[in-house]
């Protein structure tokens, strides 16, 4: 069994007053053990929803169809109680908005201490009773210190200040690293990082990338990011999402150097806008409730064909990767 995670045909819906939001519409994805998978895609295309679904935290969304097989077990049918064992030690999430991910009323030290407690299986009431900061020199204290040393998180004095701080007293970069530290303390099999390098300066960004790179070979990693160079430096495979589906999937080197899907091409091209350049397309405007018939990208696609507005393209294998676009159907499923 080589695959740690296997997502097939995943549909996730949200009911709203203006209709059902179809945030994931048949996502297929496999993640091998020890792999580093990058996920890119349009703003609002369903990346975060997919990541939350992997931990069954997508509420109020509903998994309408499809399966998520983690470690050989379909987790879509597990009870909350069973999921609690998978969250944390099985899959740990570094969430997208680090400003609200930490609990504002506890110090960083208390929250890190609690994380260690959780690893030892202390959950529920026990967790609340135990939200006490690890004392100086205690095993938990030393463990956190070791980790943060490896993470290059400053000297002893700084470390003490950090443990005593409340989340709002830290800068964005510091909070981001605390969250990564928390995920690492759990020693999970799969780490999911949802936009870990957003709004960080170059030094801090490099540091965090290095940190995530450090994980390589130890755990499996999924990184959601809009930064192509970040994905390039950490990930060995990459999935590109558009309109609630994976539209291209393959080796990072292959996808980034010769992108196949027109959206991937557009994405990579927009990366290198220059002083004085301009862009005319209006992307990011899907509300995920009503989709254009056929390929969701066809209204923007520079290579659109008549068939594109009629039939949604299925995924086809191209070499080592997968792409969902009529350009690559070789006429097989194409309407003539």
């Amino acid at each position: 069994m080589k695959n740690l995670l296997c997502v097939t045909g995943l549909h996730v819906n949200f009911e709203t007053s203006t209709g059902a939001v179809r945030a994931n519409r048949g996502v297929n994805l496999t993640v091998e053990k020890q792999e580093r998978l990058g996920v890119m895609g349009e703003s609002g295309c369903g990346k975060t929803v997919l990541m939350l679904s992997l931990m069954r935290l997508q509420q109020p969304g509903v998994i309408a169809k499809g399966s998520i097989i983690f470690n050989g077990r379909d987790i879509t049918g597990l009870s909350e109680n069973q999921m609690r064992h998978i969250r944390g030690r099985g899959i740990a999430l570094i969430p997208q908005n680090h400003s609200t991910a930490l609990n504002p009323v506890y110090t960083v030290g208390q929250q890190l201490g609690e994380t260690i407690g959780r690893r030892h299986g202390r959950t529920g009431l026990w967790q609340i009773i135990r939200t006490r900061q690890p004392g100086y020199g205690s095993p938990a204290y030393n463990e956190i210190k070791d980790l943060f040393n490896r993470m290059n998180f400053g000297d002893e004095r700084f470390f003490k200040r950090l443990l005593d701080s409340y989340p709002h007293e830290l800068s964005g970069g510091m909070r981001q690293r605390v969250l990564i530290g928390m995920a690492l303390l759990l020693e999970p099999q799969l780490v999911i990082a949802d936009e870990p390098t957003t709004a960080l300066d170059r030094a801090t960004r490099l540091e965090i990338l290095e940190l995530l790179g450090m994980l390589a070979g130890k755990t499996t990693l999924i990184v959601v990011s809009h930064e192509v160079d970040a994905i390039k430096s950490i990930c060995n495979r990459v999935a590109v999402m558009y309109g609630g589906r994976v539209v291209e999937f393959g080796k990072t080197s292959a996808v980034l150097s010769s992108p196949k899907h027109p959206y991937t091409r557009l994405l990579l091209k927009s990366q290198q806008f220059k002083r004085g350049g301009s862009i005319s397309i209006t992307a990011g405007a899907l509300d995920m409730v009503t989709f254009p018939s056929g390929c969701p990208f066809y209204p923007l696609c520079p290579q659109v064909m008549p068939v594109c507005s009629q039939v949604e393209p299925a995924e086809v294998a191209t070499g080592e990767g997968v792409v969902a676009c009529h350009l690559y159907h070789g006429g097989k499923e194409c309407w003539k």
Binding site: E42, H226, L266, L267, S270, I279, I281, A283, G284
Partner: peptide, 17 residues
């Protein structure tokens, strides 16, 4: 303050434009 972070490259370029 950071108007284009957290946006994909296409949308980010549009916001700047």
């Amino acid at each position: 303050d950071e108007p284009n972070t957290g946006l994909d490259p296409v949308v980010s370029a549009q916001v700047l434009a």
